[in-house]
Simulated assay, not measured.
Amino acid sequence: MALFTFNRPADYLEAAREMADSGRPTLARLLAEEAADRTAEPEAAARILAEFPGTSLRQEG
């Protein structure tokens, strides 16, 4: 497993891909959502979320 610093959207995306590859789709989706939120371009954010399909699992209050 790689060590992540989570300073950039790409860090979250890399972690999401690793989680997906290791059979953790829920964690992968949450990390992808965070990457998308931190991405300035709406088109790029949409592409990130499309790579990890599903509905949001966040519990925001």
Rank of each mutant, 00 (worst) to 15 (best):
R24C: 06
T5C: 10
L3I: 12
E34V: 09
A15I: 06
R8S: 13
E18C: 08
F52N: 03
L27I: 11
L57F: 10
L57E: 15
G61T: 11
A10Y: 05
L49E: 05
A15Q: 03
F52V: 05
R38V: 03
L27M: 15
D21C: 08
P42E: 09
L49T: 05
D37K: 08
P53D: 11
Q59D: 11
P9K: 01
N7Y: 06
L30K: 08
L31R: 04
D11M: 07
E34C: 06
A32P: 00
R29P: 00
E43Q: 14
M1E: 12
R24N: 15
L3Q: 14
A36R: 00
L3A: 14
E60W: 09
R58E: 12
A44V: 14
L3Y: 10
A46Y: 04
Y12Q: 03
T55W: 09
A45H: 04
A45Y: 03
L57D: 11
P42I: 12
A20G: 03
L31Y: 06
E51H: 01
R38S: 06
R8E: 13
L13N: 01
A36N: 02
A15R: 04
E60M: 09
I48G: 03
R47V: 07
A15W: 03
P25D: 13
A36K: 01
T26E: 15
P25I: 11
R38L: 13
L49M: 08
S22Y: 08
A35W: 01
A16N: 02
I48F: 02
I48E: 01
D11T: 08
A2W: 07
M1I: 12
T5G: 10
A28W: 00
R47G: 04
P9C: 07
E33T: 03
Y12F: 15
L31P: 00
